[in-house]
């Protein structure tokens, strides 16, 4: 490589590295603000202010869903296996809402440590399977479709 081209290559690499480091530092500083939701462990640990609108995310604990027979009111627990938080929601739950499913609730944390949600979103995972395969796996005695709640 000719010296002039080598110098230009160095300049290009320097530019990319410089911008990369700058953006990297900015992102590290903003780390917490870039998370879309708080995990139940963070809420239990008191990282969340009460009375402020937050997003709380976690897996719906199987068997914890209680629906009011006379209204749309539903109450359920979410977990990241390190903490449990109760969510109260008065509205239509998304189609993908199910026990064991990852969800994100947008609402306020009350003094009773219950999140009163204005909106519930379903998080889906990266796994896709045809229904027949799920049936076959379940018949073989393994739970299928159990969400891997990474993050």
């Amino acid at each position: 490589m000719r010296p002039i081209r080598k110098r230009r290559l160095q300049l290009v690499l320097l530019l990319v590295a410089g911008v990369g480091i700058t953006v990297g530092i900015a992102l590290m500083a903003l780390q917490q603000n870039l998370n879309l939701f708080y995990s139940p462990a963070q809420i239990v640990a008191g990282e969340v202010e009460q009375g402020v609108t937050i997003r709380a995310g976690g897996l719906v604990v199987p068997g914890s869903v209680e629906r009011d027979p006379n209204s749309l009111m539903a109450e359920f627990e979410v977990t990241d296996y390190q903490g449990y938080v109760t969510i109260r929601y008065n509205g239509i739950l998304p189609d993908l809402f199910a026990e064991g499913q990852g969800i994100i609730a947008i609402g306020e944390l009350g003094e009773d440590m219950v999140v009163t949600a204005d909106q519930v979103l379903a998080k889906h995972d990266e796994e896709y399977m045809p229904p027949e395969l799920v049936k076959a796996i379940e018949e073989a005695g393994h739970p299928a479709g159990a969400d891997q709640y990474s993050n």
Partner: peptide, 13 residues
């Protein structure tokens, strides 16, 4: 982004 932060978007398939 899906690995570094909590996102609604799922990780790569």
């Amino acid at each position: 982004s899906v690995n570094w932060w909590n996102t609604l978007h799922q990780p790569a398939t």
